[in-house]
Write a protein that binds this DNA or RNA. Structure first.
Lengths: 232, 232
DNA sequence: ACCTGAACACCGTTCAAGT
DNA sequence: ACCTGAACACCGTTCAAGT
């Protein structure tokens, strides 16, 4: 009846051809919105208004999609890090710190990214490139190759801006909720918690400030590395 | 024909009734031998000479099996750590270090354990108990609750004896194999590698000694924590 | 009480067929 | 060239039925 309108294009969106780029962007969108568990080939196809089997013309397999996700995220990381600036001889700590915190912001936008990154069996060239940059900063700061290598191990995934927390930051469990039972089983943690609650009564047990803890740990490590570099 | 013999019992093993314990032990065996990917309910049943559906009388679900795996491994960790000895006021670093390295040995026996541990959504009471012990050592060593809490964050999963390495220790990739191409793309890493090869010609690029790197990082962190504890 | 066969609702993926 | 329907080989899990 009515001629083709922009609204039609919006709702049907029949024209834009599929592409690897579009597939990966949709995959990121699903993971961001509904988590990694929601990312299936069928759901991904649905997001693109297409049948599942059509995806295989643009990505080889689901593994390839996951590799693509790493590519996308690391691309964002590299862009964020490049804005911080180039390595400079003086004060490697300041610049490395800034780069790591910039990378961290990307991972905070994509909470699923650490898990998929660590799950990959093959190491993406972009991850290697990122670490090459870290070593570059360290070398410019006066590190031997040997100590730079060790620094990579000490920083671990923290060099990319994330750590895999063993405790869920959301302690909704009954164990934690019942202070009496907990005090008996875990006296030290109970004491720790009790004092945290005392110091910050309205903290509602969300007493782990991720950003603060991350920076505290990062600074402690950077300090230790500088000590090794300067003194031995 | 022949009467029942021990050999029969060995091969058929028809008597021993299924139990949660036996299911979990079989699950550990499969994961140790063939990796986490090989651990399916059907394969697990097969290992026990039973149908898959029989498992559900002893474990609620596959998630419950994974929780059980954590239980088993953490049980071994607690046993290993208990042998090290109790917290003592003097020299918290020595005792914490020994406990962490003891825990590490368990994880080296079960390479899959870090992944399943980090994958769990609910935190096992045994993990909490382990960290309670860590805090106990720190407290005995003169840490405030606040700094002990921070120490947990700095150590992260290293407190349990493992770190999730981002690089696969096995660099069989073409990228790494071609030094010329690598030197161009990743000059800093190439230089690092070149020197490592120079220093250790027969190292065949296995230049990351996991145990050495782990202890180096651990000591750097413990030193930083002691500095914070003593001085501020 | 403990085990089972058949079945269901999901996966990722292949393949021959459509346009 | 790009997309699809039907199908295959796997999952975890349910349920009614066997002993």
């Amino acid at each position: 009846m009515a001629p083709r309108t922009d609204a039609d294009a919006e709702t049907e969106r029949p024209r834009i051809p599929l592409s690897r780029r579009r597939v990966l962007r949709a995959a990121v969108a699903i993971a961001d919105r509904d988590g990694l568990g929601a990312l299936t080939m069928r759901r991904l196809a649905q997001e693109l208004g297409v049948e599942a089997m059509s995806l295989y013309h643009h990505v080889a397999s689901k593994e390839a999609v996951l590799d693509g996700l790493v590519e996308v995220v690391l691309g964002e990381v590299m862009a964020a890090v490049d804005e911080v600036g180039a390595p400079s001889p003086e004060d490697w700590r300041t610049i490395l710190r800034a780069r790591i915190l910039a990378a961290r912001e990307v991972f905070l936008r994509h909470r699923w990214a650490p898990r998929v990154l660590e799950g990959r069996t093959t190491t993406s060239p972009l991850v290697i490139a990122y670490y090459d940059g870290v070593v570059g900063v360290l070398r410019a700061g006066g590190f031997s190759y040997d100590l730079a290598h060790r620094a990579l191990h000490v920083l671990g995934s923290r060099a990319l801006g994330f750590t895999q927390e063993l405790f869920d930051p959301d302690p909704g469990d009954a164990e934690v909720a019942d202070p009496a039972a907990m005090a008996e089983q875990f006296p030290n943690l109970a004491g720790m918690l009790a004092q945290a609650v005392h110091d910050d009564p309205d903290g509602t047990l969300g007493f782990c400030d991720d950003q603060f803890e991350f920076e505290f740990a990062l600074d402690l490590i950077l300090e230790g590395l500088e000590r090794r570099r300067a003194g031995g």
